[in-house]
Simulated scan of single mutants.
Amino acid sequence: MAKYQNWIESEGILKIEGWARDGLTNEQIAGNMGISRETLNQWSKKYPDISDALKKGKEITDRKVENALLNKALGFTKTIRKAFKCKDVVYDNGKRISEKERIEYADEEVYIPPDTTAQIFWLKNRKPEQWRDKRDIEHSGEIGGVVIVDDIPKPDTG
């Protein structure tokens, strides 16, 4: 059986999609498959199932990253599970006779404020005309009042 046949069956397609979803590059995926990146590119062109698995897996990861970036840009509330050390102390006539420690857990809601860097990144990519650092400005017509002089005598250095 040819090597590609293992990868166009459902189990192989599932692995490829999973690796893409985990954020692996095509080169890393090819390495996991035991082939070169060029071979993976050829197989992607020849076998739509492989191409679709790569696209689908990467799209899922891209969406997760986009959502995480958006949350970071806007701020969000998150529930965090915290551990607390508690002591049980037993006294008898004012004298400590035993002490036991235990760990208890409690959920706490924490507000993560908006992140300026995430906001800038989002805006520069989503609205580049308004937010990019470098703007292209076209000028038509003449610039009046400017005279370029290139015949200024050089000082005698001798």
Rank of each mutant, 00 (worst) to 15 (best):
Q119M: 10
N71G: 10
I29C: 06
W122Y: 13
T116K: 14
N93K: 11
P153H: 08
Q5L: 14
G144H: 10
I103Q: 02
I13A: 02
D151V: 12
F121D: 11
I80Y: 04
K85I: 14
C86F: 12
D92W: 08
L70P: 02
K3H: 14
C86M: 15
L69C: 09
Y47I: 05
D22F: 04
Q28D: 11
D107L: 15
I148C: 01
K3C: 04
R135V: 10
K100Y: 12
E101C: 10
I50R: 00
A68I: 10
V149H: 10
G144P: 02
D133A: 08
A20M: 06
E17W: 05
V65F: 06
Q28C: 03
D49Y: 01
S51L: 00
D156P: 01
V90S: 10
I103F: 03
I97D: 08
V65R: 06
L74T: 07
I112M: 14
K56F: 03
A118D: 02
L123C: 06
K58S: 12
G141Q: 04
R126G: 03
R81F: 06
A20P: 01
V89L: 11
Y105F: 15
G31W: 02
Y91G: 07
T117A: 10
V149A: 05
C86K: 15
N41L: 11
T117I: 11
E9C: 12
E11W: 10
P128Y: 01
I50E: 00
V65C: 02
I60G: 01
G75I: 11
G34M: 06
G12A: 09
T77W: 12
R102F: 06
E138K: 12
W122P: 00
I103P: 03
K46Y: 00
I16T: 02
K127Y: 15
K95Y: 08
I97T: 14
D156M: 09
V146P: 02
Y105S: 14
A83S: 14
I50C: 01
G23C: 04
D151M: 01
L14Q: 15
N93T: 08
G158V: 15
A73L: 05
Y47K: 03
K78W: 03
R63M: 09
W131G: 00
Y4R: 09
I143A: 03
L74A: 11
D88G: 12
P128G: 07
S10T: 12
E138A: 05
K56V: 03
I13Q: 02
K15R: 14
D62M: 09
G94R: 07
Q28I: 01
K87C: 07
S51M: 01
R63E: 08
K46I: 05
K3P: 06
D151I: 05
N71I: 04
A83P: 04
W122A: 02
K3N: 11
I148P: 00
V149C: 13
E104T: 11
K95V: 15
T39C: 09
E99T: 14
V146Q: 08
R102I: 07
N6Q: 15
G75M: 05
S44Y: 04
N32A: 08
N125Y: 06
